[in-house]
């Protein structure tokens, strides 16, 4: 425990390893906090939005109130689907005047818009999680590199002084092992958080798929009359 936090006498390579690992730790914890907040908000607002969606009969009313649930990915899907639907309806009105029917093509357009919005939302939800995966996999190796380097330097010192007493060997090795410890401290929460977020995102993706299907059903039943 003595001088555990002291960096006096630490070599430049081991010091660089410490700096890198601390950077990884700080950024990964920032991402963990950010994702916790983002996914929690997305979940809670999705639940509220779905309640509102099923209670409200009109799409234009839902669209007007959608800003209240801005963090929900389902709202983004609804906005994209609704705006595409409006464009299709406007186009249909013109085509009906010209005597051309394009019902199947209309649904396909809305479906494509929903798929595109789903992909955008998945990208948004998965943004920065790759950094957590990188931290989880790379930090222990970076720490191990610091340890190996530190032990190399310690053994060089033993060779120079010609003494292999514990007082000479122990401080260098203890300092080197600190690098592995910091690497693990950075990696363990990152891996745990990455797995947790992946699970939560998978659940949200399934909800988005369900919502897209429901939206298309409603469009097909009520708007195109099929």
């Amino acid at each position: 425990m003595t001088d555990m936090l002291s960096l006096a006498g630490t070599g430049p390579v081991v010091l660089a390893v410490f700096v890198i690992l601390i950077f990884f730790s700080v950024v990964s914890w920032a991402i963990i906090f950010f994702k916790l907040f983002q996914i929690h908000k997305a979940n809670s607002e999705s639940v509220r939005f779905m309640d509102f969606f099923w209670k409200t009969k009109r799409f234009d009313t839902i669209a007007a109130q959608a800003d209240r649930f801005a963090s929900s990915p389902l709202v983004m899907l609804f906005n994209e689907g609704y705006s595409e639907l409006k464009q299709v309806m406007d186009g249909d009105a013109k085509q009906e005047q010209a005597g051309v029917s394009t019902d199947l093509g209309d649904i396909e357009n809305v479906s494509r818009a929903l798929r595109r919005a789903t992909n955008q939302e998945i990208n948004r939800l998965e943004k920065y999680t790759t950094f957590l995966a990188t931290t989880g996999s790379a930090s222990p190796f970076i720490g191990l590199f610091g340890t190996v380097w530190g032990i190399m330097v310690a053994f060089e010192g033993i060779g120079r002084t010609g003494s292999a007493s514990l007082a000479v060997v122990a401080p260098g090795i203890s300092e080197a092992l600190r690098a592995t410890a910091i690497g693990l401290i950075a990696a363990i929460p990152a891996v745990m958080a990455y797995n947790h977020f992946q699970h939560k995102i998978r659940v949200l993706v399934k909800e988005m798929d369900s919502f897209s299907t429901e939206f298309l059903n409603i469009v097909q039943r009520n708007i195109t009359g099929k």
Partner: peptide, 14 residues
């Protein structure tokens, strides 16, 4: 924009 806030929070926690 929340990422900046959480970055600051993370640095403070460290």
């Amino acid at each position: 924009t929340w990422l900046g806030v959480t970055l600051l929070l993370s640095a403070t926690v460290h």
